[in-house]
Write a protein that binds this DNA or RNA. Structure first.
Length: 277
DNA sequence: TATAAGATTGGCT
DNA sequence: GCCAATCTTATAT
């Protein structure tokens, strides 16, 4: 039983890019001014938007992780550490905490809770909604998403350059893979959205980087798992503070469970369902 | 000033 | 599955 259907046709993708999907209310300060564990799952399905001189990009958030302050060993503010890097976490809610890591990657967090209480939600995965070609260009995948070239419904990855239609299954596989490469993972997402340290501290309630509640396409299923990449965090590594939309191609990787097996609903881009189908 | 590690990704075995 | 890339940040001399 699938919780949500993912695009099988070009038309469905086009409809997902339609303006009404991003027509919605910008999330107010009060939305963010709550405990990180309360905000995190509610961010799933919301639309992250970034307006830049290059153009506007937007994506549907499908994977997040909560980092909840001085007592959370995985949190940058663990132990009450207040540094130049994490300073924004300590400020008022509704701002972007962007940090640079591994010498090349940026990660976006949404600051929650109250000023002086460093909660943040890491945005780890999205499904591209607006500006897919710009995202692809930023990610160095221009040839993947270049304008299709024929027909008014030309969309990313629907064209093999021969002018012929692709088989339906192959089409779906390519779409899932493109979406995965554009939005699955905190650093991929930032690169696609044009988010860098320049956005660190940005006010999500006032500026060109913001999150809206979509007028349609609500999330129908939420799964939880341990957070990714925090083996250093002691027993906190097992806390189920990662939230994601099962089956979405925008989810970065399978859940890690205590016994090391992949959890349900974490199929990767382009994968076919293993079970009933 | 020096050193180690990182809320990752992509390429190769 | 393993490992290099690449450099800011945090922390220890």
């Amino acid at each position: 039983m699938t919780a949500r259907a993912y695009p099988d046709t070009v038309d469905e993708v086009v409809s997902l890019q339609a303006p009404q999907v991003i027509a919605g209310e910008k999330l107010p300060r009060e939305f963010y001014a709550r405990h990180g564990l309360e905000v995190a799952p509610e961010l799933l399905g919301m639309i992250l938007v970034h307006e830049t001189p290059e153009g506007t990009t937007a994506g549907r958030i499908v994977e997040v992780e909560a980092y909840i302050g001085p007592d959370d060993r995985a949190c940058h503010a663990f132990g009450g550490r207040r540094t130049r890097r994490n300073e924004v976490m300590w400020g008022p809610p509704g701002h972007a905490y962007v940090y640079f890591t591994y010498g090349m990657h940026h990660c976006l967090n949404v600051v929650c809770a109250r000023e002086g209480m460093p909660h943040a939600v890491l945005v780890r995965g999205m499904e591209p909604v607006v500006g897919i070609e710009l995202m692809a260009a930023r990610r160095g995948l221009g040839e993947w998403a270049g304008s299709g070239g024929h027909g008014s419904t030309a969309t990313p990855a629907n064209d093999d350059g021969t002018g012929r239609d692709l088989p339906a299954g192959e089409h779906t596989r390519r779409l899932r893979e493109l979406w995965h490469r554009l939005g699955a993972g905190p650093a991929r997402l930032c690169q696609a959205m044009g988010i860098t340290l320049a956005q660190n501290g940005a006010d999500l309630v006032r500026g060109p980087l913001y999150i809206i509640r979509p007028a349609s396409a609500p999330v129908t299923a939420v799964a939880a798992s341990p957070r990714i990449g925090i083996d250093y965090a002691g027993e906190a590594r097992d806390y189920p503070w990662r939230f994601y939309v099962p089956g979405s191609p925008g989810v970065s990787r399978p859940a890690r469970t205590r016994d090391g097996r992949a959890a349900p609903g974490t199929r990767q881009a382009g994968e076919e369902s293993q079970s009933a189908r």
